[in-house]
């Protein structure tokens, strides 16, 4: 299996790649909504790590990683709601979601 011996390592590599893609999206896109989507992808990559470590860890019956992932999903949903509300509010002021054009902080 080309150097990756453990199934956990394969999941960790996928999560690392997804995190990097989300980070690149958050850092390079101009549209604020797509930046938020990039952050969601990064959170999801972290969730995949939690679940993979829970599955292959020594004590899966303790449910720690699973619980962390479930709470992380709930917090991410709250974050998405507030983030998109903020973007809509900013759009109402500036008529744009282009982050390179949003320069001032005065409302």
């Amino acid at each position: 299996m080309n150097g990756i011996a453990s199934p956990l390592a394969a999941y960790l590599m996928v999560a690392a790649l997804l995190f990097a893609i989300g980070l690149a999206g958050a850092l390079t896109r101009r549209n604020a909504i797509l930046v938020l989507i990039g952050i969601e992808l990064m959170l999801n990559a972290a969730n995949l790590n939690f679940i993979a470590f829970w599955r292959y860890g020594p004590h899966p019956e303790a449910l720690t990683g699973m619980m962390f992932a479930i709470f992380s999903i709930a917090v991410a949903a709250a974050e998405a709601a507030v983030g998109l509300g903020l973007i809509i509010s900013i759009y109402r002021h500036t008529q744009t979601t282009d982050l390179d054009q949003i320069k001032g902080m005065k409302g």
Partner: peptide
């Protein structure tokens, strides 16, 4: 669609 400093962002992600 990409920001002016996209190269820096891709470098950080890589």
């Amino acid at each position: 669609v990409f920001s002016e400093s996209w190269l820096v962002g891709v470098a950080i992600a890589a």
